[in-house]
Design a binder for these strands. Sequence first.
DNA 1: CTGTTAGCGCATTCAC
DNA 2: GTGAATGCGCTAACAG
Lengths: 329, 329
Amino acid sequence: MAVRGAARPTKADVARLAKVSTATVSYVLNNVEGQRISPQTRAAVRDAADRLGYRPNLAARNLAVGGSGVVLYIVPRIALGELPMEVGSRLTTALARHGIVLSLQFETDDDRNVIDAVTDLDPAAVTSVFPLTGAALAAVSARGIPQIHLGSAQLRAMGALHLSIGELRIGHLAERGHRRIAFAHSDIDRLRPLGDYWLEGLRIATRARGMPDLEVATFATDGTGAADQVRTLVDDGVTAVCAQSDETAFVVLHGLRQAGLRCPEDLAVMGVDARPLGAVSGPPLTSVGFDARVIVEVSVAAMMAELGYPTEHDPGIEHVATLIQREST
Amino acid sequence: MAVRGAARPTKADVARLAKVSTATVSYVLNNVEGQRISPQTRAAVRDAADRLGYRPNLAARNLAVGGSGVVLYIVPRIALGELPMEVGSRLTTALARHGIVLSLQFETDDDRNVIDAVTDLDPAAVTSVFPLTGAALAAVSARGIPQIHLGSAQLRAMGALHLSIGELRIGHLAERGHRRIAFAHSDIDRLRPLGDYWLEGLRIATRARGMPDLEVATFATDGTGAADQVRTLVDDGVTAVCAQSDETAFVVLHGLRQAGLRCPEDLAVMGVDARPLGAVSGPPLTSVGFDARVIVEVSVAAMMAELGYPTEHDPGIEHVATLIQREST
DNA sequence: CTGTTAGCGCATTCAC
DNA sequence: GTGAATGCGCTAACAG
């Protein structure tokens, strides 16, 4: 049990209590390789350390190693479910354990905050879910700061997620007799790559079943023109649409209501993301829910590895996604 | 291994360029009182500093002043619109300008991450929108770390927000002939205080107009039982409901659709928060949008002041809220 | 194997 | 007014 006095114990205190030198303390606490230290000394140090509730002073450590001890995490502004925030959250605690603090930066139009943060905080690295672009990218690479992002490369590594999701969705729709299916893209540019990623999985699934290729439509986030688009789709003989995300699915649903069409009778709609709001949309939305835990773990592990803190634990990749059947299909 | 850009200039570099001592640099750059420095020297230092693009090394500064340079910001887990995140975001950049980094911590059931962060990062303060509770509170106060939160005290200071919002909503409904109005609470405990806060404002507004007191109903977030509740309300003669938030309003809308009732004919629904999704709900939701900028500014200013970085600029409190009329009323 | 020591960059006394 | 000197707590060479 740590006794909390006024001042935090320093490495010197630990050394004194363990009756060794500060260097030794440093070695055992940092698990420095190439130093052979007797198990008992090691134990003594460890004991003294947590007897005192010792925690290294980050400022001092950073000063000594010449780093800032800060890593930036850029959060996309667009609603992409809770995942990015979840990843950020987990990353925060995972890194804190290593004494480095994660500074979340939310995307803005001008990337100003990112640029400021880069110059003010001098981060050791910049992490993000999507690759940086524009001014932020320029600022970061100008300073030679390593950037780490979780592109579809990692997603692919994640058991070819798009394939299993695609199969899951198309399978569900095919079972219900749908053959002509459309894909609803978001009109947010930034999300395009993600949409394309899902689309690819869907395409492969339809092809495997000898179904006609998917039609593609892009829906405006604010619902503008959705009714007309939906009507066109239905007139073309499309009977179901797979949206790029639940958000986009909501827009399609909106279009259906505006057009006076019924869901799923006239057009079935399916999202992917399983946001809580899907339970109360009109009608409640069928979607596929991710096991956030697994995805987050993979992401965090990848980033930690990239940052030089490899995680020994490689989480299993099974069952990352499950169908959530509601009334829209 | 990426080659970092040119080494950062240090205070010594600036001193050399400005032909003064490092102490002088420190004085002018930190605007130290009680030191009389010639304007020209001052100018020379400033010039040299930004000529070199000098930024102080945070680790070194923190070491010298004995602080960690980290402040925690606890983000409530519940969906409360974008505001808390927005506040966190702004706080991040505002503090970064002062060389302190904000570490966002998301609430969890066990408060484990907060406790860990407190011991690992040794923050100078802990900020949050709501007061801390439970284990997190214990950990923070045990260490005597100052906590700063934005309770309804500040909200009230913010021009009695609940009153103006209440008046705005009731006024809108009254204009449309509604007299019997209900309030829809969220079933999330954590949100209760916020709901009560809004409710109080609504009550005062109805009373002022001699309208009957509001009925209160609590809706489950997942939509369970919403249809019955809505039906009961309508049977009771209620013609409009003010929800605690847009989220809750969506649940009411869901109940209406399930019950086969029309909105706004059978029951008008009004949210507060103006989330983007409101544009594509069924029907699109009337709500009141906050001028996030103002609220965030007030919050951030209050927190900065509390943290010892008073902001000279006291943002005006006018027009923090505007009615967003859509089809649900 | 373990102790000593020299900085890391900055804020802050204290002489000049 | 300004410059030199100290020390913050820690890491990493270098001795021993």
